[in-house]
Design a binder for these strands. Structure first.
Lengths: 104, 104
DNA sequence: AGAATATGCAGGTAAATACCTGCATGTCAA
DNA sequence: TTGACATGCAGGTATTTACCTGCATATTCT
């Protein structure tokens, strides 16, 4: 997994909305997704390309249409490998802060 | 929580490294963090400001030093409110794909 | 075949971003 | 108090990014 591509892809609100839309209904065409976006089709295409490069979206051509499918695996991996390790810190934060203010 | 600020903050490798550094040792000064970064101090300061604006880092001044503390709560909230809802999709992805290819 | 439809390709621009340098301020310690 | 040290402030620049328009290609339907 390319962690940087995944985080960068998630760093844009339009792309997060696209994932939301695909979560509601998987396998939508470019045109369907554009109807919910308030921007030119080309802009949406570029966002979808970034999501695809991050492996967050997979596509299949069916005739003249292009179907988009969400792939939540990278999201799960981000959580597993990256978010979880910070969780244990949560409880000790106030303790660390207190210790530091007291001059350690 | 400002979801956009959190995701944007996480979208840069330098800022993720800063969080990693703070995860290893909480409460580091600006100078300490800079030693691990290979960029000018000012650049690191700007990254830390972004992390602070996203509430991923809190700071305390101690004399002439500025101590930085990681705050993993936003990360946990991102997972809870945003990543989890995609998890159930994981298992049904192949099924949806198959259905679509068969013309639904 | 010809028209309508869905998407791809090729630039072009304005704003955001990630860097930097130079100087100022505040704090500690001899 | 004065020199060393840690950080803050104010721009300046080059790259990246997010958008656009115009035209081309491929597929479907009549």
């Amino acid at each position: 997994m390319d962690t940087d591509k995944v985080f960068k892809a998630l760093g844009d609100p339009t792309r997060r909305k696209l994932l939301d839309l695909l979560c509601e209904k998987n396998g939508q065409t470019l045109g369907q997704l554009c109807e919910n976006l308030d921007m030119a089709r080309q802009s949406a295409t570029q966002h979808l390309e970034i999501l695809e490069a991050a492996n967050l979206v997979s596509t299949v051509k069916r005739g003249r249409e292009k179907l988009h499918f969400i792939n939540p695996v990278p999201l799960y991996e981000v959580y597993e490998r990256w978010v979880r390790k910070f969780e244990h810190q949560r409880l000790s934060l106030l303790h660390d802060l207190k210790k530091e203010l007291e001059g350690e």
